[in-house]
Design a protein around this nucleic acid. Structure first.
Lengths: 249, 249
DNA sequence: TTTGATTGATTGTTTATGAATGTTTTTGAT
DNA sequence: ATCAAAAACATTCATAAACAATCAATCAAA
């Protein structure tokens, strides 16, 4: 048996049971104990599993589930800077919508103590909003467990009862031609509806979303202002269509 | 059995019962008392549980980061038994309402895998519903941060779009004269409205709520059936007014 | 044939475990 | 409140299992 094949088998076995003894792996692969140990060393080096006395286990057995607030997100520093500026636009007395998503989530600590009303479809936002003593309305509707967002026709209908001074929306792609795009149809519908109900409209996107296109378009560039840390090319083209606030980390 | 597997099992057991004796853990894992003690030391070190004389418990509610599901609740065993029976009444295809509260929360693990639709106003229920792969609608409205419940006129209006095969409601007080009572006006309104929208109506209350009266009455005894572990006096008087299922721990 | 890499066996070392020890804490009776 | 018994505890120690390190054998490529 070849080395890569054997290591694949090891990974598969460990993943399957969440844990595997050396003896099991010897039996499964037909290799010797020494070889298995060497494989485990390598696989741990690559971060694919965790060695424990007696065998191996998957990497994160102890810290089972982290809420989204605790998850490590890409470009966290950048998102925080974007969110901080966005939050600075919110004035006492405002009624605002905060979209589900990791960038908008970062706004919440910066809203602390403000006398505002927040509506959100992001379930993972609720704890943070609570901690920061912000008056919160949660959107009703189907819970999309994967992302912790509230979606569906019921949510749209519920949403239409509100009017917002400002809304803060995330996006997965931004281009000059296609505007703002996102992969999920139901979330796209929420974003679209929200934009229609808001006086001031902000899209929060980090640099990695620029010049990318996702499956569904939910708005033209001109419909909302952008808050980002992007400073790359085509900036002039973007600026012809809408206002952009560029923040630096 | 490998260390991580054993420790996972310990965590799972402790989480499930909110508390576990060393002897139980010895039995469950098949390890010796010494090993269990060492594991508990480590797990406490990692902040995953709390050691107490005689065993371990989940961490105190003092650290705010725990969801309600993990908080220590009084009469947990009893509530679990009540909830288990309640969940057994739910059949595939049902649309049900689950009220916010610690007793109703305990139903969720017993709903695992059922092909049902759940509507809830309990935000702390959402994670558990997610984990157990139950299709969930969250009620929209004002988030009452103290209890993690959705309330308010908007919530009532949102609620009225639904019709339920069954509803499972909590209460803080039950008496023959005053029926079901609860301290919070807004939550009372939710309970009342829900009862009106449901075909089968169940109130889940542990023994400590019997012959107690809270501030607001939200229903007469005859309006709903009771699931409880109460076996005290006046049972005949209660039975004249409604059906009571008594469960034993 | 030589070189380098991989393997499996052997070595002494380290680690996890469970039993045994005496100590502390809890409990219940006075 | 006080004391004695029981339960739970921390600590120690011996042992068996798992370990890292080493080395010779094997195999493939140069």
């Amino acid at each position: 048996m070849l080395t890569p094949e054997r290591q694949q088998l090891i990974i598969k076995t460990v993943k399957n049971d969440h844990t595997a003894k050396i003896k099991q792996l010897v039996e499964v692969t037909g290799a010797s104990e020494s070889t298995i140990r060497r494989d485990l060393d390598q696989l741990e080096e690559q971060g694919l599993l965790r060695r424990v006395h007696g065998g191996a286990s998957i990497r994160n057995p102890a810290s089972e589930e982290l809420s989204m607030g605790e998850k490590i997100t890409k470009y966290h520093k950048e998102k925080q800077a974007i969110a901080k500026f966005a939050a600075s636009l919110v004035k006492d007395g405002d009624c605002i919508f905060i979209d589900a998503g990791s960038t908008t989530y970062e706004m919440i600590p910066f809203l602390k103590g403000k006398n505002i009303m927040v509506v959100t479809n992001g379930l993972s936002h609720l704890d943070a909003l609570n901690e920061n003593k912000v008056m919160t309305y949660v959107l009703g509707g189907l819970v999309k467990h994967q992302t912790g967002a509230v979606v569906g026709p019921g949510a749209i209908k519920n949403l239409q009862q509100y009017r917002f001074d400002q809304c803060f929306i995330g996006a997965n792609g931004v281009t000059v031609e296609d505007g703002f795009t996102t992969p999920d149809p139901e979330e796209a519908a929420i974003k679209q509806t929200t934009l229609n109900l808001s006086r001031k409209r902000y899209i929060l996107v980090d640099h990695s979303k620029f010049n990318e296109v996702a499956f569904l378009r939910f708005s033209d560039l001109s419909e909302a202002e952008i808050i980002t840390n992007y400073q790359g090319k085509s900036m002039d083209d973007y600026l012809k269509k809408t206002n952009i606030k560029v923040v630096t980390t």
